[in-house]
Design a protein around this nucleic acid. Structure first.
Length: 271
DNA sequence: AAGGATGACAACCGCCTTAAA
DNA sequence: TTTTAAGGCGGTTGTCATCCT
């Protein structure tokens, strides 16, 4: 028995995508938009599984993807977010505009994971830090389990785009809470229009909508990142956890410019 | 120069969640 | 309320490039 496959695989291409396949997929999505992945290959004339098309688009072909050269700031942010969130790659990617979960996951597995581990072992050869433990999801001893405090947030989907005026990054350190006027944000639903507006007006595209200006995810996280282990539990009380994990206004795709998140790196407890 | 080791990353697989029927 | 299928996610694998011996 088992689970029904996502598509019938007979006669489908596998492995690396060709330039022609990429072109077909891009032109189809430009004309018809994303979604309906199951039917997309047939309609687009592709001999690929719908899932494969989705992955190719999301991880490689999307126009807003930034590729290669992960900056030092991005690197530190990834480590810090990984420390907080564990292997929640899509959440982490949501904080890094233009980066995909797959890219960050690969980068972690090949580079950062080792770096973080090495650094942790230099700084704390006797006692493992929570960061070290978080980077080792396979550790399974009772003692280790008891210490892991990885936050399991509920994934939520983002279906809208939001435009915000391009502003210089806030001077660090940022206050714990910050009033942001969201009343003049403009919602755009057509990605093609979004690109045009982006180029013509000099505004910056974010792929998330903060529906509630009083719950600015970044600032809450920044406080948590600055907190010591003892303060962490106090800051991250039950109510906040509930809000954070269920508030529909928080998108895991929420993204801002990396510069605006620079203050995250200023915490005293940076590993 | 050859070939094995390692790194980087694209792509696949299978499970989970959720919305629609 | 239950069932089903689509979409999303994280883990893993495959392949190519580069480095090292």
């Amino acid at each position: 028995m088992g689970r029904r496959p996502c598509c019938f695989k007979e006669g489908l291409n596998k492995g690396a995508w060709t330039a022609l396949e990429d072109k077909l997929l891009i032109s189809y999505i430009k004309a018809h938009g994303e979604g309906k992945w199951r039917n997309l290959p047939k309609r687009a004339g592709l001999k690929r599984c719908g899932k494969s098309c989705r992955l190719r688009w999301l991880n490689y072909l999307r126009p807003d993807i930034k590729r290669g050269n992960i900056s030092h700031d991005e690197e530190e942010l990834i480590i810090r977010l990984h420390n907080l969130l564990g292997n929640r790659w899509s959440l982490i990617a949501g904080r890094l505009p233009g980066r995909t979960d797959n890219e960050i996951k690969n980068y972690w597995n090949t580079t950062l994971g080792k770096k973080a581990k090495a650094q942790a072992s230099i700084e704390a050869p006797q006692s493992k830090s929570t960061h070290d433990i978080a980077s080792e999801p396979s550790s399974s001893s009772q003692a280790t389990k008891a210490k892991i405090e990885v936050i399991r947030t509920r994934a939520s989907r983002c279906s809208s785009l939001v435009m915000v005026p391009l502003q210089p990054p806030a001077p660090a350190p940022a206050p714990a809470t910050q009033d942001v006027d969201v009343s003049n944000l403009t919602l755009l639903e057509d990605p093609v229009d979004q690109e045009m507006v982006d180029a013509d007006t000099g505004t910056q595209v974010l792929d998330s909508l903060y529906s509630d200006g009083s719950h600015l995810f970044d600032f809450e996280i920044s406080e948590l990142l600055k907190a010591s282990d003892e303060e962490f539990k106090e800051l991250f009380d039950e109510a906040m956890f509930k809000d954070w994990t269920t508030n529909p206004g928080l998108s895991d795709n929420a993204a801002t410019d990396v510069d605006s998140l620079a203050f995250l790196l200023d915490g005293d407890d940076w590993p």
